[in-house]
Design a protein around this nucleic acid. Sequence first.
DNA 1: GGATTGACATACGCAACGTATGCCAATATC
DNA 2: GATATTGGCATACGTTGCGTATGTCAATCC
Lengths: 198, 198
Amino acid sequence: MVANRRLEMMEETRAKLIQAARKAFAEKGYANASMDDLTAAAGLTRGALYHNFGDKRGLLQAVVDRIDGEMAARAKAIGDAAGDDWQGLLEEGRAYIEMALEPEVQRIVLLDGPAFLGDPSQWPSQNNCLQATLAKVQGLVAEGRLKPVDPEAAARLLNGAALNAALWIAASTEPQDVLAKALEAFRCLASGLLAKAD
Amino acid sequence: MVANRRLEMMEETRAKLIQAARKAFAEKGYANASMDDLTAAAGLTRGALYHNFGDKRGLLQAVVDRIDGEMAARAKAIGDAAGDDWQGLLEEGRAYIEMALEPEVQRIVLLDGPAFLGDPSQWPSQNNCLQATLAKVQGLVAEGRLKPVDPEAAARLLNGAALNAALWIAASTEPQDVLAKALEAFRCLASGLLAKAD
DNA sequence: GGATTGACATACGCAACGTATGCCAATATC
DNA sequence: GATATTGGCATACGTTGCGTATGTCAATCC
């Protein structure tokens, strides 16, 4: 039963480091986060870091994968909850915009991620959020409810629009007000994909 | 006539540093660009840098402002060349996507800029590109050709969509093919803003 | 129960940023 | 026109932080 106690410890170490990194990266940004401070906050040293993640970028990669996965799960749950696929797509967009308001998501996944890891679609995690949106668009195109547009193109542009909306909202002094405007504009843009106006 | 020879020299120094920085930042990224190397390539030392720009971020700021200004000028020229305002908006979007394919623009303005300088709309340069798009959208809304959507919201989401399209294209192995798909999708999305289908 | 593996800590070297200081030419002052 | 002064830029230094090489100790293996 007790299997490998060492592997258990290692998983715990990785979890502690990822947790501390989420906090540090979100607060100071990837570039300004000190690995000494970060590991010390987790009750470890840089030794554990380089042993488990190779280098600083490896840790960022792990953190991004984790958050990206959580985002995709939330978006999928919200999208699936809507009975209608089209409503699901809109809800997913809304969820994406709202999630992007969280400092962790915004700073780590949306700003530092692309800058230090390169284009998100090339990430090993495969950008789960994009995949979720893509699946919905593909379904709607197949049903004929959307114009015969390239599904990947549509999904990517929708995601990009949502991202910028989030950055805008986060920087504004009236987030609620701006959120409403952004969602309305998002609905307008998305409706351009419809085969016929609803 | 000869006015201040020292000020002339200083302008030249600033220009040389900005030029070298454009190259270095585009090739290695902001974080990995060494100020020693960069200034040496310009025939200067870090002394000139800190005297003229304060710090490394100051130089990035100056470079971004410069490129952003050039982009806005090009986009405006292209948009104005179209007789129709709506066509102008689409052309501007196309121009934005295509410009974002240039490594300098992509790496410096779109990736490192937001990561190290924060939200673009907060930049002193005021994000000229966004302003140009915003002006066109405002005009079209006033004419009643677009739905009464918040112009700033629409402009920001359009820009965001274009940006993601560019990242996608740049990372693809078939840029021309992907560019076509992206432009088609962009047209679809934008048409969602129209008061009535054209 | 000794040998070995491996997870993590410790110690070191190096690169790069920012600052303090120095130098020298261009302007100002008389 | 000679001296004083300003300021643009170079030089020198301290500090921080990453990555690697080495050490240590507990958990598994034979």
